[in-house]
Every structure is written in structure tokens, then in C-alpha cells.
């Protein structure tokens, strides 16, 4: 019983901490809920320059606060999301975007994983073809099916 009380106290302490952390992000006077949702969505896609693994929405860095305010003011001026992103990219380069744009410099980033997947698939296809033809390296040192069972005890599944 006492343990449960202690656990509860610890959880309460953490909850207080989490509340304090979210409370530190300043409230902005949004026109309506839709605008607030749009603001949250947009700042989630933007990188905090100082703490680069955080997005603008969550960061407490002083520059992030300034940039949030800037984004907010641009929104009030009726700028679209694309225009706001362009505004920030012109000043801070593509680094502010979490989603890197498709351009020659980022081809490796965008298509690299696909290329590796295709290369892996090609290796598998070649290996299977060779194996099926019976002239592959797999057959050289692997005994034919069933050969294994002769000198090994049958796997009863209870050896663990």
C-alpha cells in the first residue's frame, strides 16, 4: 500500500514537470481554432536552428520563440504555408525544413534506400536462380535434403 502511494507521488512529480514544460511555450492570440491547428502543423515541419533535433513547435530556444512569432505574424498577414516556408528558406536555407526538397543535391537521400533495396533484390534473385539450376555455391557444401537427418538426432523441439 505504501509502495503504491510512493509510486503515485513519483508519477505526480513527473506530471507536474511535463505540465511546466508545455506551459513554457508562450500562448499566441490566434484568430480561431483552425488557425491554431494550421500554426501547429506548420511549425512541426520546421526545424529549430539552434537545437536541430527539435522542431519549431516544441523548442524553447530563444530563436525558436522569435521564429514562431515571425511565422504567426506572417500568418496574420495572410501568407500561405508555402510562402512562409519560402520566407524562412531564403534566410536559413533548406535546413529549416524537416522534409528535404527533391533536387540534385538530395537525390542520394531520396533514392539511395530504393537503390539499396533493388540491389539487395537483385542479389537474392541471382542466388535463387543459381540454386534452382543446381550449379550454385549453395549445393557444393550443403548436403542434399534429408542428408542431415541421418547423423543428427531428430529435432524433437524439447532441447530448450
Amino acid at each position: 500500500m505504501r509502495l503504491r502511494a510512493l509510486l503515485f507521488a513519483v508519477m505526480l512529480a513527473f506530471a507536474g514537470h511535463a505540465l511546466a514544460a508545455t506551459g513554457a511555450i508562450e500562448p499566441l492570440p490566434f484568430k480561431d481554432h483552425a488557425q491554431e491547428v494550421r500554426f501547429q502543423k506548420l511549425t512541426k515541419q520546421l526545424r529549430c536552428l539552434v537545437c536541430q533535433n527539435e522542431d519549431l513547435a516544441d523548442s524553447n530556444a530563444s530563436l525558436a520563440r522569435d521564429l514562431r512569432l515571425e511565422v504567426f505574424q506572417l500568418m496574420q498577414q495572410g501568407k500561405t504555408d508555402a510562402q512562409i516556408k519560402q520566407y524562412l528558406v531564403a534566410r536559413y536555407s533548406d535546413f529549416v525544413l524537416y522534409d528535404p526538397p527533391l533536387q540534385p543535391g538530395t537525390w542520394l537521400l531520396w533514392f539511395g534506400p530504393l537503390a539499396i533495396l533493388l540491389a539487395g533484390a537483385a542479389v537474392v534473385v541471382v542466388a535463387i536462380r543459381r540454386h534452382n539450376r543446381g550449379d550454385g555455391p549453395l549445393d557444393d557444401d550443403t548436403p542434399a535434403y534429408g542428408g542431415q537427418a541421418a547423423n543428427e538426432p531428430a529435432n524433437t523441439g524439447d532441447d530448450w
Partner: peptide
């Protein structure tokens, strides 16, 4: 003081 102009210069630190 506000850091507003610094945004135009792309200052981040």
C-alpha cells in the same frame, strides 16, 4: 534588442 532584424540576416546564434 528584439532579434527581428537578425532573422533577415539568417542569424541563428
Amino acid at each position: 534588442q528584439s532579434g527581428r532584424t537578425a532573422i533577415d540576416f539568417g542569424v541563428y546564434g
